[in-house]
Every structure is written in C-alpha cells, then in structure tokens.
Design a binder for these strands. Structure first.
Lengths: 123, 123
DNA sequence: GTAGGACCTCGAGTGCACTTCATGTCAAGA
DNA sequence: TCTTGACATGAAGTGCACTCGAGGTCCTAC
C-alpha cells in the first residue's frame, strides 16, 4: 500500500540504465513525468515496466522517437507502426540468420585471411 | 578476359551503396585501393564481393572498423572476433524473437493505448 | 562544521556512418 | 563553343542516443 517511490539512482540500478540516460528519457518525455520531492525525481514502480518496454522496443529497432509516439498515441494509430516494424523485424531476423550462417562458414573454413576466403564471397 | 573495370557510380548502383559511401569506404581502407584512370577510381568486379561482405558483416553487427580489422588480419586473429560476434548474434536473435513475440502480442491485444496495455508490461 | 554522496540544471561533447557543400576537373554530345 | 554529367577533393554538417563537465543544492555521518 505504500507508494514505494524510487530515486533516479534506484531506477537506474533496477533497469540497467545509467542515471544520465534516465534523465534523458525523462527529458524527451519517454517516461511519465516524475513527481519531485525536494527537487528530486521520484518514480513509481510502474516506471520500471515502462522502461522495460522502451528497452524491448529499442531491441526491436524502434527509435526513441517512435517509442514515444507509440506510447503517446491514444487513437490506435500505433498499430500501423507496429505492423510495419514486425515486417521489418522478420526480415531482419532472416538477414541475421544469413549473417550467422556466413560467420559459421567462415569460422569453419580454416582460412588465415578473410579477404581471400571463398566463404566470404560465396554467400 | 577484359578486366571489366567499374566506375564508382556503377559500383554504387550494383551494391546499393551511395557514391559518397563508396568514397568513404575507400577512404577508410575498407575496399582495395582502386586504380585510377585519369584521376577517376576504377574498381574490379572483386570489389562487389568485398562490398557485399562488408554489408553482411554490418548486418551481423560488426562496426566498419571491426570489418576493416578482420579483412586486414593476416594472422588468423580474426577468429576470436568472429567467435564472440557469433555469440552476440545468437543472443541478439533471441532478443529479436522476444521483441517479435511482444509486438505480436500487442498487435493482438485490441488495446487503443499502449501505455496502459497489459501486453506491454507482461513481457 | 565539514566531508561525502546523491541529486539537480544547462550546455557542450562523443562516436558512428555517412551526407552535404563548395569548388574544381574532364570528356562527350548538341 | 558550351553545357551537361560524372567524377574529384577536403572540410564541415547530420542524427541518434546518450555522456560529460561545470557549478550548485541538500542531507547524513563523522
């Protein structure tokens, strides 16, 4: 029942962000405006979930600006963004798999010099 | 049997790079030093393979500097770099899959507003 | 009462991978 | 002859996602 407010340092610790990154996120409106106690930011534990979402979305290849748009959208228009990003992601996964295959091949080829290695050309 | 030399514009076209990017790659030593004809760069078709390798490696998450190192390494030391990058890539693929799962879930949830959507918190 | 640590703001700096700009050369075609 | 287009150079600019530095406040502990 206690509000359980977090300092910026605690939030940074639990999310793995740096303190300056949290301030930056705050500044660009990516996280709910923190309440202030004596000038210092206090976050609710909700913000942890929010930051996690931001981090996952970043992993997904969204820019912070896109994430901000998605989070601030109240008209459902974000669906298109998610849809096209999903498309992009599956393509990226394919490319990633190709890259992994190429690297595995190069690793196995026994060449000393990549520049002249067939594996680096053949894929 | 003809050497089949490519102008910078042709190389850019066939690889999908911009002309200025090719010049940049040339400048930082990522592609074999081009021969010059009347001051103008002429590339062999080998360079296309080289650029493709660079592009794939970039997809794999290597920086241009790392790629340069790999290509210039003549002592086999690049194996470590490739090995650790493979590790990183498989992790990244896992995260990518998670992100795809999260986005799919959000897409399906029917929420209007992501900020308050359970799916964005639950993953 | 002073030292330390966590916090604050604002502005500038960073690294990467290019891109843009200003200025110039050169060959081909109308 | 003159224009057009592709090419050249070097230096500066761009966008993103932070990071750093300077200078200041506030609280706790010794």
């Amino acid at each position: 029942m206690t509000p359980e407010l977090l300092s910026i340092g605690k939030l940074a610790d639990t999310t793995g962000l740096s303190v300056s990154a949290v301030r930056y996120y705050d500044q660009i409106g990516l996280i709910e405006t923190a309440t202030r106690v004596g000038g210092k930011r206090r976050f609710t534990s909700e913000t942890i979930g929010r930051v996690n979402f931001v981090q996952r979305s970043q992993d997904a290849g969204f820019s912070l600006e896109e994430i901000r748009q998605i989070l601030n959208d109240t008209a459902g228009g974000w669906h298109d963004l998610v849809e096209s990003k999903l498309d992009e992601l599956t393509k990226r996964r394919d490319r990633l798999n190709e890259a992994i295959a190429m690297l595995s091949e190069i690793r196995e080829c026994g060449c000393e010099v990549v520049a002249t290695c067939k594996a680096s050309r053949s894929c």
